[in-house]
Structure formats: structure tokens, C-alpha cells
Design a protein around this nucleic acid. Structure first.
Lengths: 192, 192
DNA sequence: ATGCTATGTAAACCGCCGTTTACTTAGAGG
DNA sequence: CCTCTAAGTAAACGGCGGTTTACATAGCAT
């Protein structure tokens, strides 16, 4: 709690900084879980990418499961969607979902690749509901808001799967123009 | 190679039948891999479901990887699609893809849930290409057949994900009617 | 009946993984 | 300078999972 540590002078930064290492582990976990899935990424792999000792995930997060929960919570923010403009909402959503360069730190691939493990899946379901679907439903409004939020999630996950996960992603350019238009219209229709 | 073993008289069937046990392991593997994924299903789990000894997967398939390859190969048959009538092709495909009661023995969830493991993913990519996309492309014809086959695969996988894997599947009834119509039209458009 | 081979089993092997424990050390406060 | 606590590390522990090995037995052939 001494020195604001302006984050612009790496030379003076102490070698040991709990917040910084915790954040490094979290970021490495988000990368790994989004690409290689929950079961197939080991804590040694994550901590090696973060440049720290494997024992620190137990110290800072309690367990691998808790680390997954923290990593997904940090990524699941409904605000990214609800802060989009309501006019041209559809194209904005499609742009947002197709803008990312890859699955890195993307909650959707992370959840998909964790769905095989029962405990990780339970965490995903709970967090998705609490942090995304329910806020989104409130944003949509009391009239059919829950159904609209569910439709949004299904559509977005399908689009993400198609772009990021499926081995045929390289062929994606084939259907871009018309499909993007249809998707944008579908997203727009949910708020009209 | 003695006795045709008409499969209708279980009383006379020998207790030891290599083909039968091999098939039982394969079927159990297809069930397990489709639901719990490649990494999260153990060979002890598979062989327990098949009622046999874990060592038999090494004997009959060589390894867990080879078992995955055999399980997926057995499910990946382009014929299921190419034998559909060309008129009403779209609705027939949507009916086929949405008819299954669950992910059991479905190649798409199997591939999705195996995509985290690099070696399993390589197997999936190769088999999908050899056994499905390329035959489908030949069926579509020389003119843009490859692109059409890729579009088909992407669309079908997205639909399957939406129905089977995503935690929001329970909400699916919300968008059935219009979405099915659009999907059918999209599949139909690929052959017209 | 009697061996012989294919079939199946039990148990151990070996490596990996999440976690814990015991220990070292950086760095602030006296 | 010394001390004391927080931060980090190394190594081991227990368990699990794929695979191998050594052994048992069913069923056909002689």
C-alpha cells in the first residue's frame, strides 16, 4: 500500500508483486483455457506461461477449478453487448463477434472446451446465467427478455463456433457476405 | 468362421466373441466420446460400459487414440447426406440434424469435444476431410463443390452445437419455427 | 480326452497432474 | 543493521490413467 506504482516505470517495480503475479496467472489461464480447454491444460502449463511457480495457483485461487471460475468471470461481462447502440445493433454485434483475431481470452470457446468436464461445466452454466443471460434479459426488458437473451446466446455461440473452433474455419470466407447480413438481421430483430 | 450365428439366438452364442466385444467397445466409446469428450473419458470408463477388461482396447484398437479414430470413422459417413432427395433437400437435412434425441453417437459433438486435444483434433480434421467433406464436395459437383461442402459443414455444426451442446439448449424451443425455415432454405440454396 | 490358440482378466508399471509441505528470500519497518 | 512477514520456490505426495505384462480359461482341432 505504498507508492502508487504508476505502471509506467517498470525499472522501479519490485520483483515481488502479488497483484501482478495473480493477474499474470489469470491472463495465462484465460489464454490456455480458451485454446486448449479446461481438462487439457495443466496448472504447470499455465504457470510456466506466466513465468511463476505452479504452487501459486493454489495460493492465489485455491484450486484449478477456482482459477477457471475466476478466469471465466473476468471475461463474462454482459456490458460489452448492452452498451452497443440499439440502432444498427445487429451489425454491431456481428462486427464485435467476428472482429476478434482468435479464440484467445474469449469466453465462448472457453465454455465450449470446458463443457466435457462436469464440474467446469457447472461453473460455466452458473456464471453464464448470472453474469450474462440474466443481465442481458433485464436489458432486453420484461417482455420476453429471457427468451430473447437465450436466443442471443445461442446465435452468438453458433457464430463463434463456426468462426473459431470448427476445423473448416479456413473456408469461412465462402459464406461471409450473405451470412453476415442474415445474422445481423436476426440480432436486430431481437430488439425490435 | 463356423456357424453363421444368426444373431437371433443369444442362448447359443459363445461367451467369447472377438468381433462382438470389439463392437461393444466401439459402441461404448462412441457414446462416451460424444457426451464426455475425448480427454475426459477414460478407457476404464469405456470398457466398464462395455462390460470388458480395460486391456482389450490396446488389444483390439492399439491405443485410445486409435479407438477414437475408429469410433469417429464409423460415424462419419457422407452417405447419410448424399442419399437425401434433392427436392426438399433443405428440410430433409434440418429434420435429420434435429431428429436425434441427444449427442449419443453423433460425430459432430464428438469432434467438438475432442478439439482441445491436439492429437485427437488432428485425427478429427483428417477424417472429416477424407470421409465427409471431400465426398460431399464430389456429390455437389465440380462447380464450387468444395465451397458448398464447407458451408454445409459449418452450418450443420453450428446447428448441432446450438441443439446439443450449449447450456441454453433448454431454451431452444424459442426460435424453432423461423430458424428451421431459414436453415432449410440455406441448405437448399447450396444445391440450387 | 488333450493339447493349442484365441480370448479375456488381474495386477502392476510408469508417467502426469493437482495439491501440499517445507523451505528460501525479497523488502518494508523498527 | 536486524527482524519479521509476505512472496516465491523446490520437491514430494497421492491419485489417476493409458498401457504392458503375466496369467487364466473357453472352445476348437486333433
Amino acid at each position: 500500500m505504498s507508492m502508487p506504482e504508476s505502471a509506467l516505470e517498470p525499472a522501479l517495480r519490485p520483483q515481488r508483486d502479488a497483484q501482478r503475479t495473480r493477474a499474470a496467472i489469470l491472463a495465462a489461464a484465460q489464454d490456455a483455457f480458451s485454446i486448449r480447454g479446461y481438462s487439457d491444460t495443466g496448472v504447470r502449463e499455465i504457470t510456466a506461461a506466466a513465468g511463476v511457480n505452479p504452487a501459486l495457483v493454489s495460493r492465489y485461487f485455491g484450486s484449478k477449478e477456482k482459477l477457471y471460475e475466476a478466469a471465466l468471470s473476468d471475461l463474462l461481462r454482459a456490458g460489452i453487448i448492452t452498451e452497443l447502440p440499439k440502432e444498427n445493433f445487429g451489425v454491431a454485434v456481428v462486427d464485435l463477434l467476428t472482429a476478434s483475431q482468435g479464440p484467445q481470452r474469449n469466453p465462448l470457446p472457453m465454455m465450449m472446451l470446458a463443457s466435457a468436464d462436469p464440474t467446469a461445466r457447472a461453473i460455466s452454466d452458473r456464471l453464464l446465467k448470472e453474469l450474462f443471460v440474466e443481465p442481458l434479459a433485464r436489458w432486453y426488458g420484461p417482455e420476453r427478455g429471457a427468451g430473447k437473451a437465450a436466443c442471443f446466446s445461442a446465435l452468438a455461440s453458433g457464430l463463434t463456433l463456426y468462426r473459431e473452433l470448427y476445423p473448416l474455419g479456413a473456408f469461412g470466407a465462402e459464406m461471409s457476405a450473405e451470412t453476415r447480413k442474415w445474422l445481423a438481421a436476426a440480432f436486430q430483430a431481437l430488439i425490435d
